[in-house]
Design a protein around this nucleic acid. Sequence first.
DNA 1: CCTATATGCAACTATTTGGTTGCATGTTGT
DNA 2: ACAACATGCAACCAAATAGTTGCATATAGG
Lengths: 102, 102
Amino acid sequence: MLEAEIYKALGDPIRLEILQRLSTRSAYTIGELSANLGVSRQGARKQLQVLVQANVVHLAQNGRETLVTLDTTALQLARSFIARIESQWEQRLEALKNFVEE
Amino acid sequence: MLEAEIYKALGDPIRLEILQRLSTRSAYTIGELSANLGVSRQGARKQLQVLVQANVVHLAQNGRETLVTLDTTALQLARSFIARIESQWEQRLEALKNFVEE
DNA sequence: CCTATATGCAACTATTTGGTTGCATGTTGT
DNA sequence: ACAACATGCAACCAAATAGTTGCATATAGG
C-alpha cells in the first residue's frame, strides 16, 4: 500500500488548510501561505514541505520569494483509490442482497 | 479542518491493507484481519483501533469473537472533500485561461 | 549602499505513533 | 470440566512528528 503517503500528507488540519487556500488562488508565496495558520513561519514551512514531498504542491523560486502551486494529480489518485474501496464494498452489499433474496 | 482525522487514519499501509481486505468480504473477525499483516496480533489490533476511532469500520461482539465491518460514510466525505478542492482548482484554471484569452 | 524582506538551515524538545511482550479473561467444543 | 481459542489490557521502547528558537543569506527597493 504505497498510496498511504498522500493520505498521511492530508492528515493534518494545518496542511488541509494550506490546500484549501491554494485551491482558491492561482499562486501564493510561502510567506503568504504561512501567515495566520496558528504556528510560526518555520512551523508552517515544515507542514508545507510535507505537501511538497507528497507531490501535492510544487515550489518555484522567483527572486527572493518562492511561489507555491497546487498539483491535483496526486489528489485524483487518492480520490479514485477511495472510490475503488467504496465500489467494491457496494458490490459486496449487492451480492449479499441477491443471496438473501433467492 | 476537522476532516483531517479520516485522512490520518488512511495514512498508513497496514490500515489501507485492512480496508482493502474489508472491502472484498462482508465481515472479518479481528483475528482473521490481523493475520499476515507483517506485525503481531496486538500491533494489528492497534491499527484497527485507529480505523474504529475514525469511524471507518465498526466492531460487533459475537460470542468470543468480534466482527469487523466497513462503513463507507466517512470515506465518502473524505472523497468529496478532495473533489471539492480539485474542482475549485479547476475553476481557478478556467478563470486564468479566460483572462489570458481576452 | 543599506535596510528591510523572504526565505533557508540546524538544534533542540515534547508528544504521538507503531510496534513489542506478557498476562488476564471470557467463550467454545469435546 | 477443561483445554484451546479469540480477544483485551498495560507497560514499555524506538522512531517519527510537530513545534519552537536562533542565526544565516540572498534579493529588492529607496
